[in-house]
Amino acid sequence: MSNVVIALGRSMAGSLRDLLPIVLVIAFFQLVVLQQPVPDLVGLLTGLLCVVAGLTFFIYGLEMGLFPIGQVLANAFARKGSLFWLLVFSFSLGFGTTVAEPALIAVAAEAASVAAEGGMIESTDSARSGYASGLRYTVAFSVGLAIVVGVIRILKGWPIHYMIAIGYVLVVIMTGFAPREIIGIAYDSGGVTTSTITVPLVTALGVGLASAIEGRNPMIDGFGLIAFASLTPMIFVMAYGMVV
C-alpha cells in the first residue's frame, strides 16, 4: 500500500513540475504585460489542483491499463496470425475512437458554418448538420483507413518516409483544387483527430506489433501510426469539400 502512495506522490511532483510553465506564463502576462489582477484566485487554485491530480492519475493509469492492453492485443494478433481480424480491429479502433471525438465534433460544426457562409451549402440548420455529420464520418473513415495502412506498413516493413512524402504530395495537389474556405479547417483536422486516449493505445499497438514480428525494429517500424492518422484527414476533408 505504501508503495502505491510513494509512486503516486512521485508522479504528483512530476505533474506539478509539468504544469509550472503554464502557471508562470499566465502569471507573467496577466500581471506584467496586461497589468490586470488575477480574477477568481480561489477558483484558479482549485482548478490547478484538479489538473495536477488528474494528470497524476492519468499517467499512473496509463502504465497500468492502456499500455499493457495495447501490448497484449498486439502480441495476441501477431501470434494468431489472422491478418483479416487484425485489419478489422485496426479499422474499428481508428474509426470508433475518432467518430465520437469531441474536438472533431466541434471542428465539423465550424466547418459547416464556413461552408454555409461560402455558399457551398444552404444556410439552414438541417443542411448544416447534414454537412457536419458527413464530414465527421469522412474523417473517422480516413483515420480508420490510416491505421489499417499503418499496420500493413509495420507488417511489411515498408519505409515510412516514402509513404508520408506521397501523402504530402496528395495534400499539395488537393490544396490546388479544394475550395479556399475549407483549406484551413482541413489542415487543422489532421491535428485534432488524435485524442489523449487514442494516442497511448495506438502507440502501444504499433510498438507491440513491431516487437512481436521478427525482423522489425520497434523504433523504426513501431512508431508512425499517429503520423498516418494525422495525414489522411487533411486529404479526405479537402476531398469532402470538393465533392459536397
Partner: peptide, 23 residues
C-alpha cells in the same frame, strides 16, 4: 488493467475539470 482504465478515466475527467475551471 481495469483499475488502470479507471485511473485513466478519473484522471482525465479531473484534468478536464481543472482546465475548464482554471486555465
Amino acid at each position: 488493467v481495469l483499475f488502470g482504465f479507471i485511473y485513466v478515466i478519473v484522471g482525465l475527467a479531473l484534468f478536464l475539470l481543472g482546465l475548464d475551471k482554471a486555465l
